[in-house]
Each structure stands twice: as C-alpha cells, then as structure tokens.
Design a protein around this nucleic acid. Structure first.
Length: 558
DNA sequence: GTAGGGTTAG
C-alpha cells in the first residue's frame, strides 16, 4: 500500500494525476492490496474525469469480492453514464451479485445487449447460478451456449461438484473430452478430484491419477494435496503416501491432508510423527492441522498426546482453540472412557457447547454403557435440537446395551409419535465399475435371495467358531431370534456376501457406508476376514476400518 | 506496453 501512496504523490507532483492510464494502474495496485485499501481506491476513482469501460471494470472487480454492494452500485453508475460494459464486466458484476433477482436482471441485460453468444458473459452466468445452488439454471445456460470453451466446461463441472452431483460432474468431465475435445487444466482437475473424493471410488481415483500423469499437468502443491485427500477418502493409504513422497513441493495444506489421512485410517502414531516433522521444517500448523492431529489422537486413544497438542494450540502457537477443537477433546476423552472428565470438560468450556459437542458425549456414553450420564446429556441435547434421529437411536442403543428393553421401547415409541424416522443404513460396493447399493434387509437387489441365503450360511458357519451376534443396537424391542435376524441383514454384511459371490480372485473388498458401523458388523467383519482370507476396507461415517486376519486397524477402538 | 472470465487444494 505504501508504494501506492508514493506513486500517487509522485503523480500529483508531476501533474499526471489526471492521466487515465496512470490512475488506472494505481487502481489496480489498490485492488491487489488488502480490502481496507478499497476506500482509497474509491477516492482515486473519483479523480478520474470520465471513467471508461476499463476503469469501471477495475473498480467493480476490486469490490466484487469483499464489498459486493459497492461493486453493484458502480455498475449502476456505469449504466447511468452510458459507459458500455464489455465481456469482462459481466463476470465481475455477477460475482458481486448474491441474490437471484440481481442475477436475473443481469442475465436479461446480457441478452438485451447481444452478449448471448459471448463465452465470458455466459460463463459468468454459469458460475453465478452454480454459486447460488441453482444447478438447473446453470445447466440451461450451459446447454444453450453454441460456443463453449474450457472455462464453460470447467464452471459447469465445478457447479455440479459443489452441489453434491458428483457422479454427474464426472460424466460431464468425460463428455468434455469426447465432445469438446478440450484439455483439462489444473482448475478443472481440482473439481474432478474433489468429486471422486466425495464418491470414495478408488478405481475412478486411480484413473484420474493416471490421467493427471498422462497429461502435461505438473504435480503442483494444490493438485498433489487434492490427490492425497482423494486417496485417503478412497481408502488407499499406500497411494496417498506415494503421492506425498512424489511431490516436489509441499505446504501446510499438504501436510494436513497427510496427517488427516493417517488419522482416519487409524495410524495415530504416524500422524503425530508427521506433525512433528512438519513443525521441524518450520511450517506453522493452523486450526485445521490441529483438528487433524486431535482426530488422530482420539481415534488412536492417545489421551496424553491429545492433551499435549490441545494445550499447545494456545500456549505454543497462540491460536485460540475453536469449538471444533473442544469437540475433538470431548471425543478423545469420551472414547477413552473418561466420562466424568469429558463431562467436566464440556461444562468448563469457555465457548458455549453446541449440540454436536453434547452428541459426541452421548455417543461415548453409549459405547461405555453409562446410561445415567446419557440421560443427563440427552436433556441438554433436547433443549437444543429435539428432533434429530441419531440422538434417539443413540439413547435407545444405550438402553439396549444394558438390557433395559422397556426404556428402549419408550424411546422408540416417542420417536414414532414425533414422526422421526431413523436414517436407513446403506452401503456401496463397486463391482467391475458398477456401483451396487445395499440397504438393510434389502430385497430389491437382483439375486438378492442368493445373497441373503449365502449370508445366512456364512453366519451359521461362523457361529461354530465363536461368533455370537450382538444385538444391542437393534432398534425394536423384539424377540431375541428376530433381533438376530434384524442385524443379520445390515447393509455392509449384504455387501460383503455379494462381494464374495461376485469377486473372482480379489483379495481386497472395499465398502462405503453412510452410518457408523455397528458392533455386530464390526465383529462379523473380523471373523470373515480371517475365515475367507480377505482384506476388507470399510469407510463409515467417521473413519476407515481395515479388517484382515481376524483383526481391525482400529483395534476395536472407535 | 498493459490489465480482466472458472477454483482455490487440507
């Protein structure tokens, strides 16, 4: 900013202070500086006698990000002064617009002024609609464009990806290469990689990885970091470590992706080592790094290390711990069975605990069968969010865990009365590029009877080897035999049976599921991994479980 | 002589 002031003073001295191009350059420098330099930019702009399109574009662009209302009023001024917008103007204005109505106005203006076949203006519309989650409108603009460039495709792919339409984003990416014959660049790939990460589809991930390798793209810091995260979410530890090693340059985000990956795969010690190594290199951890390290501690049961890291956030790094960090600590203490310590921690927190914190504690109460505390915690949750399905399920599991079937039934009934339904559990399995979906007790699948029969025979054969179905998580108060029946068909078990029937010689079975794996399925997977000599990798809502030879990477601590 | 559209990775 100092240079801007100096230059301005110089211009005033030399009489060039009304020269449009000098002023314009000053404006540009202002825009590149911190947002608080914007008022200076506005006063500079006021010096320009008759600002042209370029000057308006620059001042609008400067404001579009951090001061959108100013940007829009400059656009209004531009129209009032009959300065004609060019194709750069629209994307800037659209970036500032955050309401659909504004977008519509600009959309019709673009049409009226004859910019309907201008890629710049139309691409701006795609990202505008995409940003407001109006995917249909974005798609319509995209489809109606007669000429598209790489940025049109890229904007549309990112729009689909950002709105949860991951599969559609990947389809469009494929289409881009066939129809459009465009070469994806780094920005495009970041969206594509993000879509694969969300889908957790390893085979697709490997294909994208080799695609990046085959193209002329360099393994830049953002690209490599995105790939690390992708492999970690797709369940391949070896692959994300490989990418990390291959990267010529790394930053805090890269290290955080690595630490987080190790954490969710149950490699807490390695995550801590990576954290130390990162600090030795002089990189400053930030809030997200700390969250990853704390997750590593809580999944690994590293209570002492967790406390040390938590205290260091403030003491060593001068960062005020955030709600999320407190949440990690509650999880850490709760999982470790230090229930009273966890409860005290929540009560003494300097930030008001939210429902997520209490819910974490409730989860710990259930795993440690502490029903008294669970009821107390449930009260707190009830005040904040009375209609969350998961809380009812947790509490009912808490009762089930200690055989209080009457209380369990009461919870179940109140759930029914309030018309709260439990989110159904489902699992995904990829067989030869086709993604199969399984729902608990599912009948819809082709050959589903075969799968079920096979599953029943597996369960029978396991019971000879000491596997006892654990039914405390069954929601209904039903007879024992029925209970067993109900957990028998949990979606991940169906997926496993289906995989055994349909995978020829594959040793590794990868399953994704939406909820947390239950006790019984966890126990089941340990047994079958040994019996059938398979590696089973399950991604649940929170983390990964790698089952092999009768044990799990989480060491039954999850 | 020159600015300027997508997305910002964990």
């Amino acid at each position: 900013m100092n240079n801007v002031y100096k230059l301005h003073a110089h211009l005033l001295k030399t009489g060039l202070h009304e020269d449009p191009s000098s002023l314009h350059r000053l404006l540009l420098s202002c825009a590149a500086c911190a947002p608080d330099s914007l008022s200076y930019a506005r006063s500079l702009f006021a010096h320009i006698h008759s600002p042209d399109t370029l000057a308006f574009n620059t001042i609008i662009r400067a404001h579009s990000h951090s001061s959108p209302l100013h940007a829009l009023s400059f656009f209004t001024l531009m129209r009032r002064r009959f300065v004609s917008p060019d194709h750069y103007t629209f994307p800037f204005v659209l970036k500032a617009g955050s309401r659909l109505r504004v977008g519509f106005e600009i959309h019709s203006l673009i049409m009226k002024l004859g910019f309907h076949s201008d890629v710049y203006a139309m691409n701006g519309l795609i990202s505008f609609y995409g940003g407001l989650k109006y995917v249909e409108f974005a798609r319509q603009v995209f489809d109606e464009m007669t000429v598209k460039d790489l940025i049109s495709w890229s904007s549309m792919i990112s729009c689909l990806n950002n709105n949860g339409l991951w599969y559609e984003a990947l389809c469009l990416f494929k289409q881009m290469q066939i129809v459009g014959n465009f070469k994806a660049d780094e920005v495009t790939m970041l969206s594509v990689i993000s879509a694969v990460s969300s889908l957790g589809a390893l085979e697709l991930g490997r294909w994208i990885d080799s695609f990046v390798r085959r193209s002329d793209l360099k393994l830049t810091v953002p690209l490599g970091t995105a790939l690390i995260d992708m492999y970690s979410r797709c369940g391949s530890v070896d692959d994300f470590i490989r990418i990390f090693d291959e990267m010529p340059k790394r930053n805090v985000l890269t290290w955080t992706a690595l630490i987080n990956g190790l954490a969710v795969h149950g490699r807490g010690r390695e995550a801590l080592r990576a954290f130390d190594e990162m600090k030795e290199l002089g990189l400053q951890p930030d809030d997200i790094t700390f969250r990853a390290v704390l997750v590593a501690c809580s999944h690994g049961g590293l209570v002492v290390d967790g406390w040390r890291v938590f205290d260091s956030i403030k003491n060593e790094h001068n960062i005020e711990p955030m709600l999320e960090h407190y949440g990690c600590m509650v999880d850490l203490l709760g999982r470790a069975g230090l229930m009273n310590e966890a409860f005290e921690f929540v009560e003494k927190m300097p930030i008001r605990p939210n429902v997520v914190i209490w819910r974490t504690l409730l989860g710990a109460c259930v795993s440690h069968k502490n029903v008294d505390l669970a009821e107390k915690v449930r009260e707190r949750i009830y005040e904040l969010d009375p209609s969350h399905d998961g809380d009812y399920v947790l509490l009912s599991n808490a009762y089930g865990g200690i055989g209080k079937w009457v209380e369990k039934a009461v919870v179940r009934t109140s759930m029914r009365e309030k018309r709260i339904s439990k989110e159904p559990g489902y699992s995904y399995l990829n067989v030869d590029g086709v993604i199969h979906e399984f729902v608990s007790g599912d009948n819809s699948l082709p050959k589903s009877d075969d799968t079920k029969d096979f599953l029943v025979s597996i369960i029978r054969s396991l019971s000879d080897e000491g596997y006892i179905p654990c039914t405390s998580n069954v929601l209904h108060d039903i007879e024992d035999e029925e209970k067993e029946y109900s957990v028998s068909y949990h979606s991940e078990k169906l997926a496993f049976a289906f995989a055994l029937l349909n995978y020829k010689d594959r040793k590794t079975i990868r399953i994704m599921k939406n909820l947390r794996i239950c006790c019984d399925c966890h126990c089941f997977m340990k047994h079958v991994s040994h019996k059938f000599n398979r590696e089973i990798i399950i991604r649940d809502r929170n983390r990964f479980h790698h089952f092999s030879d009768g044990s799990c990477s989480c060491q039954d601590y999850w």
